[in-house]
Design a protein around this nucleic acid. Structure first.
Length: 150
DNA sequence: GCCAACGTTGGC
DNA sequence: GCCAACGTTGGC
């Protein structure tokens, strides 16, 4: 079992939206590295749901991978902001997994607390210039955040 | 709103 | 295949 971080701007899609929807396709990722990580995901993998561009930025809760990667439908939709003219149904370019809601933390764990914690040294989330919206996460870091910080 | 970091594009 | 220009991300 593997662990991951998924970032989202809460104005676009928040953990409350996921709580309401229970499950959603994680569409709109348009970065090859992030896409490749989603292809590596397995059903049941656990995910930290991270809120970016908000106050405070940080981990808002836990989600779970609910499907293997499948073609991201938004790449085919001309009206969608994430439309990709180079993608075809036969040769889709972008893939996404479904994720389901697990838990929302009472208070989000601020990025600052994650950066300051020596137990989380090396976590990709705290790395300088870490813009990737889908990131792998060490099991020990996942457990520490959920068990000790949440 | 600024800007550093990073990814992508495209001319050569 | 290099690399400058450009676009995007995302913390601050």
């Amino acid at each position: 079992m593997n662990y991951w971080v998924l970032k989202s701007e809460p104005t676009a899609y928040s953990i409350d939206d996921l709580k309401r929807d229970k499950r959603t396709a994680w569409e709109g990722v348009r970065n090859y590295q992030a896409r490749n990580f989603m292809k590596d995901m397995a059903v049941g993998d656990l995910v930290l749901f991270y809120h970016s561009s908000t106050e405070p930025v940080g981990v808002a809760g836990v989600a779970k991978v609910a499907s293997l990667a499948h073609p991201d439908e938004s790449q085919f939709n001309k009206r969608d902001h994430h439309f990709d003219p180079k993608a075809t149904a036969e040769k889709p370019i972008w893939h996404c997994v479904d994720v389901s809601f697990v838990h929302k933390f009472k208070e989000p764990i601020p990025l600052g607390a994650i950066k300051a914690d020596p137990n989380l040294r090396g976590i990709l989330l705290a790395a300088q210039g870490s813009r990737l919206s889908v990131q792998p996460l060490a099991e020990k870091h996942f457990k520490y955040i959920v068990d000790e910080l949440a």
